[in-house]
Design a protein around this nucleic acid. Structure first.
Lengths: 204, 204, 204, 204
DNA sequence: GATGAATGAGTCTTCATTCAT
DNA sequence: CATGAATGAAGACTCATTCAT
């Protein structure tokens, strides 16, 4: 009865869901289609997930969790908040560009209206927000960023900007690379935050 | 057969839809509930809208159209791009704060996955994006903003930031006012864009 | 409240119904479409007909009544039952061929399942059946047709054959003329009925 | 997704549909009522049939297919075209008389106006028409039937007559037996076709 | 008489979920 | 553990009919 949260099939279903939802959208992704893509029976999905919604939330949790853990690890040893900011943008954009399906799901399909889904993804998203805010706080504390910057607001600007750039890219026909936006986005954000306009040159 | 696009009931249905969708989300807003809220029969909806999706798109078009027209009018006579930016943020946040239901629908419920809906709202959204980009271009041309700013990217930062701040506010319990964010958001964005860090003090 | 059964619009609606039903089938012919075709308002239909079903039945009654009256008149003065039979087939096929829409409605669209409709068209159809049976009875009485012919059965053969030939023609692409079938159908039916194989040569 | 076309429930649904449609007519037979009659859930219908229309067409195909196969088998070894004709009428009328519901559906309810349904039943009906025409051709070739008989027309007479007799019987209150009409119908049709009036006495 | 905007009952179909095997 | 046939609740949409003007 209790959903198993591990095993080979667990991940097969997650990957199948990313693919099917990316291609068809959440509301047009039948459980049976995800099951077929994963090579399991419909009922098997329910051995691993409580319901369809739980599958979507788990998917986000897994993918976001992996990303957040990786990001935290990569940023850990960087000393300068500007470089951390650059690296963050780099990680964010590269992650989405390297997996177009995941990008579609996270940027588009996940923006669902169901309150329960939004609640379910709030926690893993919060962890990512924390990483961003920590960079901001560190920047302020170290004197690299302006003292009057509100760190929550700065986080909203950083995330909102990356998010909008990524959404534009996902919805475009990909004529340009998302990676090409890393440096210009960095300069925009860095200038918004820098103390007395003194920013570090872009470096990841 | 052709849907009537005017009349007292047309607007009554639009308003009812905003209310019901804000409260329940698009996929959980039955046509019959919207009809009841509007005080008309179910079938009447279909005299004014082709289908449920058309209702959502029309709603966005109407509301966004009103806002865009108003914004363009208000910005027209302002001379300084910094002041225009401040006024834009002011208009954006005030519009959402003055109509919590509309904010819910636009910030949350409308972020649907259906391609057809996204296509339907693309055009009116584009008109708003144009207004933002025009401010950026004017700023660059006049020398107020940095010459190396990419105006599309700047627009994405401005919109993305306002959008994320608004979404956070909508999803919070409104302990704070969205209007209170106008000035700090202005300073963040203005610094990101300003030539040599020379920004205008906040003024709407 | 009581439906008017005369007037210019009455016939305009009947003709519009024949056209629309011929083109779309009964169940796909909305009252509003018939009204538009007739150049009247939807509600006007209900000043002349009790409901949609009454319109269909009236249509059949009018058209069948005209035909039956004409046929009875044309057959009245013919002396020979063989010639009457030939003339009947001639009238039946010519009527349908001269008005393709009417043929479509009578041969195809009218074969509806609603019991009430079948009951409504039973009476005018019966009048036509009577004409056919009278020819048969006259043939038997005069010694032209076999004495052991059951007149109801003979009528069923005559009508059934004409009906099937007409239906085949209506459903075909009209590569051939229905009139061309008059003579061969006559010979088939005449031989089935003739006393000692002595039939009259075809003559209308 | 693909409809299963076999299994116990497949036939249970077919039989239930025959019963419900016979009693209520196609347009007044809700899918849910057919499901209840068959003892399955509404949704189960859609595991076996693409939609309601497909159910009606399948029903006809199955029943007509069974009948045509049986008729072809029974007629195979009969040597004389007159006897084949007699046997055909016998099979046709007995089949309908032995299953009043089937008769109602085939003679009345199936005469629908929907083009798609007519197209769907055209093929199995054609197979039956072929059997009739083969008898006619054999009769002409063997010299038993007149040389100037058009075989398509003869088929239309044979089918049209049987059909009209059956329809009359179905719509009557069954005061008489359809079987009682086999012999007189045979004599009518045989005389219409016979060379020089020489027919075989009725024998099945 | 005529209009046509408004009504609201009625139904097919989908698909997440269950459970006997 | 795994299956997949079966379930049945839920809802968008149509269109014949009415009635205030």
């Amino acid at each position: 009865m209790a959903a198993k949260r591990t095993g080979e099939k667990y991940y097969a279903i997650i990957e199948a869901a990313v693919k099917v939802i990316a291609e068809n959208g959440y509301h047009n992704s039948q459980v049976s289609r995800i099951a077929r893509e994963a090579g399991v029976a419909d009922g098997t999905i329910y051995l691993y997930f409580k319901n369809k919604e739980d599958l979507l939330i788990s998917l986000f949790r897994i993918k976001m969790g992996e990303f957040t853990a990786g990001a935290r690890h990569e940023l850990k040893d960087l000393k300068n908040p500007f470089i951390k900011l650059a690296r963050l943008i780099h990680l964010h954009f590269n992650r989405l560009e390297s997996d177009r399906n995941l990008a579609l799901v996270v940027q588009i399909q996940l923006r669902q209206s169901e309150n329960s889904i939004r609640k379910g993804i709030a926690a893993p998203l919060k962890l990512y927000f924390n990483i961003i805010e920590e960079i901001v706080v560190e920047g302020i504390t170290s004197g690299a960023f302006r003292q009057d910057v509100n760190h929550k607001l700065a986080r909203q600007m950083i995330f909102g900007t990356m998010d909008e750039v990524a959404t534009s890219w996902v919805m475009s026909t990909h004529q340009y690379s998302l990676a090409s936006q890393i440096e210009p986005v960095y300069y925009l954000l860095a200038r918004a935050l820098a103390q007395d306009g003194k920013i570090e040159p872009f470096s990841i």
